[in-house]
Design a protein around this nucleic acid. Structure first.
Lengths: 202, 202
DNA sequence: GTTAGCATGTAAGGAGTTACATGATTTT
DNA sequence: AAAATCATGTAACTCCTTACATGCTAAC
């Protein structure tokens, strides 16, 4: 039953793994983490938290210690079962991991993913996009299906879409190289790499 | 009632405007037109066609003339009411037109949209993306909300997302310039332009 | 004291998917 | 004759949004 689209649940567990949080704060962080489009609504989040409570992945800890703020809030903590579920899901490098809706979330939690799983997810994602490109390139050239061949705007839209996907493929390739380079360097002790992940200044 | 998400309906009407089609073929064309991700399912398309029949936007024309293929198929034709509805919707240059889910479809039918509406939709879309960028840039720098500041992968994901949006903004700017250039050139009779839409070879 | 933002929820409904069910036609 | 693909649908379900409803607390 919990095999399909547990994206939201997983993201919540991922955040709670770092620190307990209440719903309102959770929503803000989820919007930063997942959402480059629509914002998550409360009507989506709170019922999800209820489901997760019932599943035993999280527990309510009504903020009893009015330390910083005396505002009462319902704080959620991850349970050992929740940690296990998160670990299991995040470790799975199957199709679910490289679908459009899930990939970004999986990527965001890559720090808690082993190197080989990271690599397989990145490669699976690239494969998926590559297939999409192949389909697009073969169905496009002959004649637009929109009646007369080659509506200017339709053509331009498709050109831009293809370019966007190509760009993402290049990005993934760089990341894959970096992952492989990282592994190789770990193995042979070489700190250099051209395709490194940009590290934050510190 | 028909103000919200009539994306699928509109796309169907747009295609039927060119030529009558049956469901199966419609799906294939919609997938090319709209879908750079998920494929439209029959469970979504056929009920939509039923709704549109009830609304009076299309009519069934059971393929009585077995010309090319003697296979019987249900062909849908757009009605005058459907044409009117499509025209009204496609003319509206409001927020609905530059949302993520709708923009591509609106763009795909730009050939049937007047120049001023095209321009307003492109500008609205660019504005929307610009706001998204501003939000992203201001909430990002100080310290990641994910606990310790700057998880490498989260940072990389956000960098790539911002770059993607920036790229789309540049694309829109080029298109806007092209539209304005086109209008200006029409007015003053100058055939030159650097930011022209790529035209198909013919 | 009133506005803005924090905080938690529920009910109704929209939009789509998956899985199922069926059968005709074309290609191999 | 079998397999692929064309073609049309329905039922159950998932996931999410909108709109509503409520009340606290901090800042101006």
């Amino acid at each position: 039953m919990a095999s399909k689209g547990a994206t939201l649940e997983l993201a919540v567990l991922g955040l709670l793994q770092e620190t307990p949080l209440h719903g309102y704060e959770l929503r803000k962080r989820l919007n930063l983490l997942l959402g480059w489009g629509r914002l998550l609504s409360y009507g989506s989040l709170y019922p999800a938290l209820k489901r997760m409570l019932r599943a035993g992945w999280i527990t309510e800890v009504t903020s009893a210690s009015p330390g910083v703020s005396r505002r009462q809030r319902i704080v959620y903590k991850i349970t050992p079962e929740g940690t296990k579920f998160f670990g299991d899901q995040i470790t799975e490098a199957g199709p679910a991991a490289w679908e459009d809706e899930n990939f970004n979330m999986r990527f965001a939690f890559f720090s808690r993913t082993s190197a080989d799983v990271r690599l397989r997810i990145l490669e699976g994602r690239r494969q998926r996009l590559q297939e999409r490109l192949d389909r697009a390139r073969t169905t496009q050239p002959p004649s637009q299906p929109g009646g007369r061949n080659g509506d200017r705007y339709v053509t331009e839209l498709q050109r831009h879409s293809i370019e966007s996907v190509e760009r993402e493929v290049r990005w993934l390739t760089e990341l894959i190289d970096a992952e492989r380079g990282g592994q190789a360097r770990e193995a042979i002790g070489d700190p250099r790499s051209r395709h490194q992940l940009r590290t934050s200044q510190e």
